[in-house]
Amino acid sequence: MFEARLNNATTLKKILDAIKDLLNEGTFDCSDSGIQLQAMDNSHVSLVSLTLRSDGFDKFRCDRNLSMGMNLGSMAKILKCANNDDTVTIKAQDNADTVTFMFESQNQEKVSDYEMKLMNLDQEHLGIPETDYSCVVRMPAMEFARICRDLAQFSESVVICCTKEGVKFSASGDVGSANVKLAQTFNVDKEEEAIVIEMQEPVVLTFACRYLNAFTKATPLSNQVQLSMSADVPLVVEYRIAELGHIRYYLAPKIED
């Protein structure tokens, strides 16, 4: 028996919004430690890794490890049927071929359940090595989303250059070129407005705007985003989900031919 409850459907809706543009389907691996999903996008350029800890749920029970392959478009249709302040419970029997989403209104007067067929997904699981990154940048998630959106107008790719002084995002194309420089902040009132740079070695890397913009769909989940970079390895874009876990996106850099 598997049962996971969140007192507020908003979080789950936001999580799905953060992954459904990149992934058509995904396997939710459930164990007593929580729920994990790891999947590459269709073109195998990026990887999504979602971790939701069992202690972050309002109720969590998982008697046996369970892998539930879900069509994320179908899951989105179902979650649309939940009000933001509904309690959502995800339930499945052991070895079941369906999963049930139950939504309860705050006053308990409306209870709905939606059963969805599970899929057998033959997805590759990738081992992600522990990496000490040369540069780790923490910045407001809204600011990152804004920069990705703005620079995508000028080029298919953005160059991220990180030094001790700051981080620079650049794009150039037919129209011209664009540069956005962010300096590390000192003495900001609110932690969520801070820009913090931890640098061992400077890095310059090029990434596809299309994917960065897809990652920023997670912005509603977190005030801050963390970018981890080293030469010649994938960028990690991490959004923490308060008290529940995190979503990490890995993006392969563009390389010289």
Binding site: M40, H44, V45, S46, L47, E124, H125, L126, G127, I128, P129, S157, T206, A208, V233, P234, Y250, L251, A252, P253, K254, I255, E256, D257
Partner: peptide, 14 residues
Amino acid sequence: KQTQSSIRNYFTVK
């Protein structure tokens, strides 16, 4: 000229 590499080049298949 830059090309997009695949994420599979960086991680091992479990």
